[in-house]
């Protein structure tokens, strides 16, 4: 569905250098701190910025060869950009109807009612949650095949976030070939939603893993100096020295639980995995 190979974009000292794939029928997450390069990657995929190297293919075509018809199959959400705040929901209905041949007006209005979005109020007067819901609704109302969602949940409370994630699940149920690339710096959003996750740091992809594997096989070993000295290190990914010993990130948690029953093994949450991948030393 989406293939990014060796994409390079330079901004002064910052360099984005990433390779990512989004498969049909899957929700792929892109997680990283603010400024890690998530939005730059999205903008490159959408042709909003020039690139310094690499290739981007969407629906099997080079990014630059996409037609307007192809682009109608891509729904986009940016956290910091959307329709003019001076427009109302009623205003954007005919705009979308004329931009997308498959715009589903009835679905759009039904969902707008479900999310209690006022039709005649200016968007700039909406709450953060209402704006976010409108953006996702706009992206999903035209039977898109691929959603590119850059931080769609930023600034939302728990209830609004759940409603929005529910809308995304419904989008995936609509067609088994639909796919989503979603970015966030909040791991809990992605943990429950994504099939696989890319972790990005300082413009580089530091890890790609299936979410199930990440949650079941990754772990954090808490060992002291003596335990660390006797530890088989072939399944350790990162090591970080702490005040009482070492924290070791592994992707073979069970191996250490079975062979080193004396050491403490913690479940590897996404936040811990990210912290270790960024702050830890390679073994």
């Amino acid at each position: 569905m989406l293939e990014i190979n060796g994409l390079v974009k330079r901004y002064g000292d910052f360099t984005l250098d990433c390779t990512m794939h989004v498969e049909k029928g899957r929700i792929t997450g892109l997680i990283g701190q603010n400024g890690a390069g998530k939005s730059t990657a999205f903008k490159a995929v959408l042709g909003l910025i020039s690139t310094d190297g690499g290739t981007i293919r969407i629906f099997g075509k080079e990014q630059g060869e996409l037609t307007v018809k192809d682009r109608q199959k891509i729904g986009v959400v940016f956290a910091d950009s959307g329709f003019s705040g001076y427009l109302t929901v009623s205003d954007i209905v005919p705009v979308l109807a004329n931009l997308y041949t498959d715009f589903d007006k009835a679905f759009f209005l039904k969902q707008a009612k479900r999310f209690e979005l006022p039709l005649r109020k200016k968007i700039k007067e909406f709450s953060t949650g209402m704006k976010a819901k409108l953006k996702v609704l706009t992206a999903t109302a035209s039977h898109a095949k691929l959603l590119l969602l850059d931080e769609p949940t930023v600034g939302l409370d728990v209830v609004a976030r759940d409603e929005l994630l529910e809308l995304l699940r419904e989008f995936m149920e609509e067609d088994e070939e639909n796919a989503i690339l979603i970015s966030s710096h909040i791991s809990s959003d992605l943990e429950s939603l994504c099939d696989d996750l890319y972790m990005i740091h300082s413009g580089k992809i530091v890890l790609h893993e299936d979410t199930d594997v990440l949650l079941s096989d990754y772990g954090l070993l808490k060992v002291d100096e003596r335990q660390y000295a006797g530890l088989d290190r072939q399944y350790l990914m990162r090591v970080r020295r702490g005040p009482y010993g070492y924290d070791c990130l592994t992707n073979q948690k069970r191996y250490y639980m079975e062979n080193y029953p004396g050491i403490a093994v913690e479940k590897g949450s996404i936040d811990e995995v990210i912290t270790m991948m960024i702050r830890g030393d390679e073994v």
């Binding site: 891509i74 940016f78 910091d80 950009s81 590119l148």
Partner: peptide, 9 residues
């Protein structure tokens, strides 16, 4: 707004 506008078809 242009980022979103130019991501439309």
């Amino acid at each position: 707004g242009n980022a979103f506008l130019f991501s439309l078809p």
